[in-house]
């Protein structure tokens, strides 16, 4: 493990050194990479800190029983509808969906609901869907949603049941 960390630090240092040298000597490829890094970093800084604060608030305010009841083992179709609704209104795509899904799981949501959440967060966020339709047309967006959403639900259900049978547990303390 220690050796691994050292290697990582070395690789990251080389990367940044390369970027700095590229700037000094005007090497264009290196500058482009730096530009990509900065623009994506800014994009993530727009959402990530907020997302984590909201996750923190969710963890202290929302009672475990509430999540267990609506998204847990006993929840039926309504659980899926709930989670799709939640996913549809939360911004940020997959990157935000992972920690949110993780918190939902720790509050007692079942696995198939978690995977549905991740899938839905990827494909049917409401603002993004409207934006998509404005560029691609309503027909395109409608087909995409109507085909992918049922497939997401079905595969999540199957995957969730398969993993539950195998006693799969998500790692703790993330």
């Amino acid at each position: 493990m220690k050796k691994n960390v050292k290697l990582k630090i070395a690789a990251v240092s080389i990367y940044f050194l390369f970027l700095i040298i590229s700037f000094i000597f005007g090497y264009n490829s290196g500058r482009e990479i730096a530009f990509n890094l900065i623009s994506f970093l800014l994009y993530m800084l727009k959402i990530l800190p907020c997302a984590f604060i909201l996750i923190g608030l969710f963890e202290v305010w929302v009672k475990k029983e509430v999540i267990e009841k609506h998204l847990g083992k006993e929840s039926g179709i309504r659980g899926y509808l709930w989670v799709i609704l939640i996913a549809g209104t939360i911004a940020g795509g997959l990157l935000v969906a992972f920690p949110v899904a993780y918190s939902l799981y720790n509050k007692g949501a079942k696995l198939s609901i978690i995977f549905t959440y991740i899938g839905a967060a990827a494909i049917c966020r409401i603002p993004m869907t409207l934006y998509e339709a404005s560029f691609m047309g309503v027909k395109f967006t409608a087909i995409r949603l109507l085909v992918s959403l049922p497939l997401v639900i079905i595969t999540s259900k199957l995957l969730g049941e398969y993993l539950t049978k195998r006693n799969y547990k998500i790692a703790e303390g993330r």
Partner: peptide, 21 residues
């Protein structure tokens, strides 16, 4: 809540940097 947020963010932050690279 803010403490939870900070701890969680710190844990995943190095991985985010790797991803950004």
């Amino acid at each position: 809540a803010i403490k939870i947020a900070t701890v969680k963010f710190k844990k995943i932050f190095p991985t985010f940097i790797t991803m950004l690279i």
